[in-house]
Design a binder for these strands. Structure first.
Length: 341
DNA sequence: ACGACGTACTCACCACGTAT
DNA sequence: ATACGTGGTGAGTACGTCGT
């Protein structure tokens, strides 16, 4: 690989593609020696000048190589998310995203480059102020670099809308971290924009399951109020598409009013319990067990979690070593006092 | 080990438009 | 009227993951 790059730049003598073989230079012993002092001086200067020229040429080749390099360091501000971007804002508030950010910060940049295409008339993207590139994939890595204030490593490539969409979709599916709703929004946008003429064409083109495409698009068609009833759209599952769609068809007003009420009062309600409430059904047994665990921290570090099991029992689980024997009685006393109030 | 849950996949079915 | 193709949906099943 490295050899290829050097060959391309002509840095390996005699291997430059298409280059004519250099004329055989006469051996040093056969070069005519200057016979005068000025002649010696001129010969020295000529030799020196040749070395300088060679160094200049090498520098130019290296610069050209850097510019040709498939991976470039770009200012995140010059890259705008793809118009097919399917990442919900909640995707950038997860522990996973924070972990990715920390990993990029530790490495001093994104080791795995994102892919962008130049904005322009060739691919239908419209230039925007300050943005020279449109993301094809790597939205989370781009966002992480932007938040860290560091350049983002990117592969720059021309791409049509369809090619951009398919590359972005495959990259995301490969990572398996797109929620059902996010997929639905992405597929729906592709259909609305005319990238595919039907669900079947889309599923064939992308190699994704037709029924999943159908379900995810059904989720994406749900009113905003229904989506907002959930803590995050990422909580919504494929199989909820049918009952939610049916509820909207049979009782749109009731479903919407329940959705708005849930949105205002849900607290830590589990996604399955929110679904049941939206559908006007009794909440599933043990739904509260899926309540988000409450964490107990000391000096910024989580030392225990408060959860609820399937039988409704509250459980405080301390990390190993976080609760010394000497403190157990004190904890019991503190809890007893707390429960008296 | 077991059950619950979530996802992927297959297949059958229905609705609709068009050709014969 | 019937057959056929296309587009979309839903039921059933298998498999993997996770918590108990």
């Amino acid at each position: 690989m490295a050899r290829k790059i050097f060959e391309k730049a002509g840095l390996i003598p005699g291997l430059q593609p298409g280059a004519k073989p250099a004329p055989e230079a006469a051996p040093a012993s056969e070069q005519p020696k200057p016979k005068t002092a000025p002649g010696t001086m001129m010969g020295f200067l000529t030799a020196q000048s040749g070395a300088v020229q060679e160094a200049e040429a090498l520098r130019a080749r290296v610069k050209a190589l850097e510019e040709e390099s498939p991976i470039r360091k770009l200012d995140p501000a010059t890259i705008k998310p793809s118009r097919w971007a399917n990442r919900h804002e909640a995707s950038f508030r997860t522990d996973d995203f924070e972990a990715l950010k920390a990993e990029i910060a530790a490495a001093g940049g994104n080791v795995q480059p994102v892919k962008v295409r130049p904005m322009g008339v060739l691919n239908g993207s419209t230039p925007e102020a300050g943005a020279a590139f449109e993301l094809i994939y790597g939205h989370r890595r781009h966002r992480a670099c932007a938040e860290l204030g560091i350049p983002v490593s990117a592969i720059v490539e021309e791409a049509t809308d369809l090619s951009l969409f398919e590359q972005m979709e495959r990259e995301n599916r490969g990572r398996q971290n797109l929620s059902a709703w996010e997929q639905g929004v992405m597929y729906r946008r592709a259909l609305d924009e005319g990238l595919y003429s039907s669900l079947r064409r889309l599923s064939d083109g992308l190699g994704v399951d037709l029924s999943l495409v159908s379900k995810s698009i059904a989720l994406a068609r749900l009113p905003d109020a229904v989506i907002a009833a959930f803590r995050s759209p990422l909580d919504i599952q494929f199989r909820w598409a049918a009952p939610l769609t049916e509820a909207m068809q049979k009782d749109p007003d009731g479903t919407l009013s329940r959705a708005r009420a849930i949105g205002e009062t849900r607290g830590d309600l589990a996604p399955s319990a929110i679904l049941a409430r939206l559908l006007g059904q009794p909440e599933p047994a043990g739904a509260e067990s899926k309540q988000q665990a409450l964490t107990i921290s000391r000096a910024g570090k989580v030392v225990a979690k408060l959860t609820t099991d399937t039988k409704g029992r509250a459980l405080i689980r301390f990390e190993a070593g976080a609760l010394p024997d000497a403190k157990r009685r004190g904890l019991v006393k503190a809890l007893e006092d707390f429960l008296k109030t």
